[in-house]
Design a protein around this nucleic acid. Structure first.
Lengths: 118, 118
DNA sequence: ATGACTGTATATTAAACAGTATACATGCTT
DNA sequence: AAGCATGTATACTGTTTAATATACAGTCAT
């Protein structure tokens, strides 16, 4: 279980704990609706990352970007998967083509499209 | 088990069977390295779609587009998932922005990027 | 009517997934 | 020193995934 996912969650929770006593393992587990022992195990990477649903709640709880957290767990949200699944040919081609493009190029594409350039 | 995946595979195999006796359930199963009964069940949607690895072999066997076949199974290849997982922020934004863009717009983006416009 | 193919029905399974429940050790506070 | 809150160790559980193994029924040719 050597993923960075748990370490990231722990660091983030400990930071929040400095500012408020509401971020102990137990309190967080309570709000996530899961067992404290499970939170502990996930944070220490003793078990693999949880399900998508749990990760999304966790992201909200810690104020983190859900896509980033899912990515650390090696996953992609069902929402984004659906985008691809509905038009696999175009989006597969698009992703392979843009795979190595630098960030700024991708963001330019986003901007162009948003500005109604189609 | 009401996916279109199985029906699609069966139709395709039956077409190929018309042209050659090498596309019976047993022959195909043999080349895929799985049991004939399993092929039969998958084709009749009696069981959910197989694993990604098996779907990819199946696509090759029938001469189908792997991305399309995976999509019919509701999946996205690990290869494409990796593209997103490595840079989740940009690619998540990109996909959400392009989600509803018409095909021709997406293909234009592909062309632009390929023509070194970055 | 036998043998050699078809496809399919039925029963079972090993491993992974996604956690729960309980008990325990440690440190701090009063 | 008693109580309370921390995090964690240990053992167990229901469900899903991804198939296998074997037996069976129908068709076709010889």
């Amino acid at each position: 279980m050597s993923n960075e996912f748990g370490q990231y969650l722990r660091k983030r929770r400990e930071e929040l704990l400095k500012g408020s006593p509401d971020f102990t393992v137990r309190k967080v587990a309570g709000r996530l609706g899961i067992q404290p022992s499970y939170v502990s195990k996930v944070e220490r990477c003793e078990v693999p990352p949880p399900s998508e649903a749990t990760i999304l709640r966790w992201a909200e709880e810690l104020g983190e970007d859900p896509d980033v957290l899912l990515a650390l767990a090696g996953k992609v949200s069902a929402e984004l998967r659906d985008v691809i699944v509905k038009r696999p040919k175009v989006f597969a081609q698009l992703l392979r083509e843009l795979k190595d493009a630098p960030d700024h190029a991708l963001l330019r594409v986003v901007r162009e499209v948003r500005d109604g350039k189609w």
